[in-house]
């Protein structure tokens, strides 16, 4: 960790102004010398590891009074970006109307981390790729663009099989984002020129040729909230992992179904633990819509979800595992009493 200045933002405009100061060069946002601090569960960790080296940290927690509300009005869900993961996961109305949201949050990290971590910070959580997190490896395209990818030929059991490139196979580690992308959530972004709203699916950028650029956020922009249209009581988040708690997904599925008279009218499938970004499996959704769910259909949906997947030395198992997780999640959602 290196010395840094600590500033408390008094309000949103002061926060974005402070963040915009350092954003004059073409560096990716994650390399910016000024970083926002919310729960700190990722930023402080990466600063200790010398992966992130901000010279100024802007504490945005004072904005919590404005940015941490949970609203279920008019059939939509709005979540403030500074709401704590634990508070949202424990909300009975969310548990009832959006089980996929509550479970994705509940199954992430540990209670202590969920008490600190905010929703906005959580969706921006950076990869757990061990080569990314250890600066003694020179070859990481995320940290040092053009230096190569140590994981490609290295220990890559935890790495991604979808959305990968020759430059980077680092997995997007979060859970909550899969629920958001599945439910067509939008992100509210506050910047110097006001508030803009984009689909959540447009927030993250797959690595492609520039894995150092992880989101479409511009300098001086902060996520201020999320909105989810409609209610999804028939939804599940299924997470397969090496231990029962406090562990990242090897493969997970966020599934939401609208079933009328036994026929799937609408279906959402998103995948976690297997892709470089929050991953919506639209090809899979197309297979299921208008059909009656049975074993064969669930299998075809799962196949479609992983049609473009590509495994590496240690993670090819994630393709088969991911398919079975999708199939199980579909059955589980279909069996729910709503």
């Amino acid at each position: 960790m290196r010395p840094f200045a600590y500033q408390r933002a008094t309000d949103a405009s002061a926060a974005v102004a402070a963040l915009a100061v350092a954003a004059t060069d073409n560096n990716p946002l994650t390399e910016s010398k000024v970083q926002p601090l919310a729960g700190g569960t990722t930023l402080i960790d990466l600063m200790k590891l010398d992966v992130m080296r901000p010279s100024t940290v802007i504490d945005i927690n004072p904005l919590a009074s404005a940015w941490s509300a949970i609203n279920l009005d008019g059939g939509n869900l709005r979540l403030g970006a500074l709401a704590r993961m634990s508070d949202v996961a424990a909300n009975p109305e969310i548990q009832h109307n959006y089980p996929v949201v509550a479970d994705a949050l509940r199954l992430a990290a540990s209670q202590q981390l969920r008490n600190m971590a905010t929703l906005g910070g959580n969706v921006l959580q950076r990869t757990r790729c061990t080569y990314f997190r250890d600066v003694s490896y020179g070859n990481c395209n995320k940290r040092n663009p053009g230096s190569g990818c140590a994981a490609l030929e290295g220990i890559n059991r935890m790495h991604a099989v979808l959305g990968i490139s020759e430059q980077c196979i680092a997995t997007y580690p979060g859970d909550f984002a899969q629920a958001l992308i599945a439910l067509d959530a939008t992100v509210e972004i506050t910047g110097r020129s006001g508030v803009r709203t984009i689909p959540f699916s447009e927030l993250h950028k797959p690595p492609g040729n520039s894995p150092q650029i992880e989101t479409t956020l511009a300098a001086g922009e902060l996520i201020s909230g999320f909105s989810i249209p409609g209610r999804w009581p028939r939804s599940v988040y299924l997470k397969a992992r090496d231990r029962q708690s406090y562990e990242f997904a090897l493969a997970s599925a966020a599934v939401a179904l609208d079933i009328q008279d036994g026929v799937v009218r609408d279906a959402r499938v998103a995948l976690g633990g297997v892709a470089t970004v929050p991953w919506r499996a639209r090809e899979a959704e197309a297979v299921i819509k208008g059909q009656k769910l049975d074993d064969g259909l669930a299998q075809r949906v799962a196949e479609a979800a992983f049609a473009t997947a590509k495994g590496n030395k240690h993670n090819a198992f994630k393709i088969g595992l991911g398919k079975r997780v999708v199939a199980r999640a579909l059955h589980q959602a279909a069996a729910m009493e709503v």
Partner: peptide, 11 residues
């Protein structure tokens, strides 16, 4: 300790 796994209470 994040990547070197050992059981947690739930295990």
């Amino acid at each position: 300790l994040a990547d070197y796994l050992m059981p947690v209470n739930a295990d």
